[in-house]
C-alpha cells in the first residue's frame, strides 16, 4: 500500500516535470523564433504577463484552499502577494511598451512593484527555509552567504562600470539597478541553500519555489546589466529565463496544491 502510494507520487512528479519542460520549451521557443521580428515585443511581454499571471492565480487557489494559518498558510499568502505585485509590474511594463509604444520603459512604476514584491517573497523564502533547510551545516551557510556577497560586489561594480545612462534619470536608473542585485543576493542565499539540501522526501525532493527564485535572480542580473547599457542588444533570452522562472513557480504551486493540501481524490489514488 505504502509502496504503491510512493510510486503514484513519483509518477505524478514525473508528469509535472515533463509538463513543465514542455511548457517552457513551447513558450520560450515562441519567444526565440519571434525575436527580431515585428511581433517580438508582443510575444515577449504577453508571455511574461501570462506565465506570472497563471502563477498568481494558482497561488490564490492555494491560499483559498489552505487559509492563512500556520507556517505554510502565512508563507503561501505572502508568496501570493509577491506574485500579484509582479503581475502588476509585468502588466505596467507591457502597457508602456505595447500601448504607449515606449521602448523598454526603465525606470518606471513597474520597478516599484517589482521591488515591493521582494518583501513578501523574502518572507516566503526565509520562513519556509525553516522547514526545508533543517540539517544544513553552518560552514555551508557561511560559504553560500560569502559567495552571494562577492557576487553582489562584482555585479555592482560591473553595473557602475558599464553604465552608459545620462541625464536626470540616470541616478534613479542606476539606483534601481543596484537595488535589484542587493535584494536578489538576499534571496539567493536561501534559494541556493535549499537547492543544495534538496533531493530528500517524497513530497519535498524538488524545492520548486527556490528553483524558480534562482532562475529569477539569473534573469534579473542579466536585465540589470542590460538596463544600464540602455538595453542595447537583444533581451529575448532574458524573457526566456523569466518565463522559465514563472513556470517553475506554477509547477511548485501545482505540486503544493495537489500533494500538501489534503485532497480526498488524490488520497484515494495514493492508496
Amino acid at each position: 500500500m505504502e509502496q504503491q502510494g510512493y510510486l503514484e507520487i513519483r509518477k505524478q512528479r514525473k508528469y509535472l516535470i515533463m509538463g513543465l519542460l514542455v511548457a517552457i520549451a513551447a513558450i520560450d521557443a515562441t519567444v526565440f523564433f519571434t525575436a527580431g521580428s515585428e511581433i517580438e515585443y508582443y510575444i515577449s511581454d504577453l508571455s511574461r504577463v501570462s506565465t506570472i499571471g497563471a502563477a498568481a492565480v494558482l497561488s490564490l487557489v492555494v491560499v483559498s484552499r489552505q487559509g492563512i494559518h500556520g507556517l505554510f498558510g502565512k508563507a503561501y499568502a505572502m508568496l501570493a502577494a509577491g506574485l500579484i505585485l509582479w503581475v502588476a509590474a509585468e502588466s505596467i511594463w507591457a502597457y508602456h511598451e505595447l500601448v504607449l509604444a515606449q521602448e523598454t520603459p526603465f525606470p518606471s512604476l513597474a520597478d516599484a512593484f517589482w521591488l515591493a514584491a521582494y518583501g513578501p517573497i523574502g518572507y516566503h523564502m526565509f520562513s519556509t527555509s525553516k522547514f526545508f533547510g533543517r540539517g544544513i551545516k553552518k560552514h555551508v551557510i557561511l560559504v553560500v552567504t560569502a559567495a552571494a556577497i562577492i557576487f553582489s560586489y562584482f555585479y555592482l561594480q560591473a553595473i557602475i562600470d558599464v553604465s552608459t545612462l545620462e541625464g536626470a534619470e540616470a541616478m534613479t536608473a542606476v539606483g534601481i539597478s543596484v537595488a535589484y542585485p542587493v535584494f536578489d543576493a538576499i534571496i539567493l542565499v536561501p534559494a541556493i541553500l535549499m537547492i543544495t539540501n534538496a533531493g530528500r522526501g517524497q513530497l519535498t525532493s524538488i524545492p520548486w519555489i527556490f528553483v524558480a527564485m534562482l532562475l529569477l535572480v539569473i534573469a534579473d542580473s542579466l536585465l540589470g546589466l542590460s538596463a544600464v547599457v540602455d538595453f542595447a542588444g537583444q533581451t529575448f533570452h532574458i524573457t526566456m529565463i523569466f518565463n522559465a522562472a514563472y513556470l517553475c513557480f506554477m509547477a511548485g504551486l501545482l505540486w503544493y496544491n495537489k500533494q500538501f493540501i489534503f485532497n480526498a481524490k488524490n488520497a484515494a489514488k495514493l492508496m
Partner: peptide, 14 residues
C-alpha cells in the same frame, strides 16, 4: 498543526 491545518491533515493521512 503549526504548519497549517490542511498540511496537518495530509501528513496524518500519510
Amino acid at each position: 498543526s503549526a504548519l497549517g491545518g490542511p498540511i496537518h491533515k495530509t501528513i496524518i493521512w500519510h
